[in-house]
Design a protein around this nucleic acid. Structure first.
Lengths: 222, 222
DNA sequence: GTCTATACTCTGATAGAC
DNA sequence: GTCTATCAGAGTATAGAC
């Protein structure tokens, strides 16, 4: 929809304001960044920003919507899900994890998640977005998935709500560990920090609930 | 160390500033509260606050230290732990959970945790405190505990580090759900929201790793 | 200890010349 | 579209009278 690969010089001023704001907000937080600072970064006066954005909040709004658009683009159909579940639960979890990580792993997207993590307390829209996208809808989705798996005889009977929470809470833990507590430290990306831990987690869950077929290759040690 | 139960009128001005700041910061965040506002709440001019605290940061510092002192007061000796583990893993988990919840459940402590959750991005000291108290030291502790349980033959062999993360990550998930996303909603306290979920979680973990004695009372349904 | 008064800095935002 | 100039308001903090 937008030209993405164009060199820096061909970006419109509005786009340059957007980029500069994402960088500054993700480093310092929304309140700590002034319009003057954004202007300085872009190379224009702060008053000129108001030709492109109504006010400072409109920049943040724009950033949030950018992420929402991006997340809306990736999703599974029920049929794809069904096929995957039937084929192999391991593969399904792997694909699900990959989808989750893809939604937060490119550098720009990571910065936006970071901004939202910082501003979740100060902005009602961000809070609602978080509660929906990170708490409620994923857990509801996973509840459905686990229910389906039980019906298919792939996993043992267990309260699917509890199972969904057991599974997804770990992803949230990783999210908070990275974006709130460990951002700007030794890790180069969310995937870098979290992916292997998520694999360990999936194995742990499967160990408990999976119904073994005739293959007993469970005791792997590295 | 301090008189706690004295009626409001007998608090010193410094204490009243402390109380007012905890209330205001936990509702609006540190930056959003002005010295004028604190003064108004206490009933003095903002300039008078500087007779009791060097500056605004000193108030926050005081609040953080209050929590650190409080947390330092509750802890287990290795002997107590050993005795509990040997007696019953269920009881041990229950006691451990209760300790965790006690550290964040009285109304004043909850408010302080909320303040810290809001300010974790803007304050390096708070971030370090969080990383130590909520991420690293608990997971290290639980790793030791699970190792001990394995040696005693109470739980099955498994990577104790992974197990520690599996167990404690859920507590962190609950912490973030409450203090960051759901504070000021339908729940009256952290315990109110989280305790039953934590029990479900403990049961799930035990289901996977516990070595059953001769009793098979695992299939309870409500 | 608290007050008034004041200093100073920074913020987001607007008006109007070019 | 960008500039200069300017605004009102809020922020922390200090000095000195009482």
């Amino acid at each position: 929809m937008k030209k993405e690969n164009s060199p820096q010089e061909t970006l419109t001023t509005k786009e340059r304001i957007f980029e500069a704001s994402v960088n500054l907000f993700s480093q310092k937080g929304f309140d700590a960044v002034s319009m003057r600072e954004i202007g300085r970064e872009v190379g224009i006066r702060e008053s000129s920003i108001y030709n492109h954005y109504k006010n400072k909040d409109a920049i943040l709004e724009n950033i949030i919507n950018h992420l929402i658009d991006e997340l809306g683009a990736i999703s599974f159909t029920d049929e794809e899900m069904d096929a995957l579940i039937s084929e192999s639960p391991e593969l399904f979890f792997e694909t699900g994890s990959r989808e989750f990580f893809n939604g937060m792993s490119n550098p720009k997207t990571e910065k936006i998640w970071r901004i939202l993590s910082i501003e979740v307390f100060h902005n009602e829209k961000i809070k609602t977005f978080f509660v929906n996208e990170l708490l409620e809808s994923p857990i509801n989705e996973w509840e459905k998935i686990f229910t389906k798996m039980m019906k298919k005889g792939i996993i043992k009977e267990y309260d699917p709500r509890v199972l969904a929470r057991e599974y997804f809470s770990f992803a949230l833990y990783l999210f908070f560990e990275y974006f709130i507590l460990k951002y700007d430290t030794k890790y180069s990306s969310f995937t870098d920090m979290a992916y292997n831990k998520m694999i360990d987690h999936t194995n742990f869950i499967l160990k408990t609930v999976k119904i073994e077929s005739n293959d007993n290759s469970n005791h792997k040690k590295s």
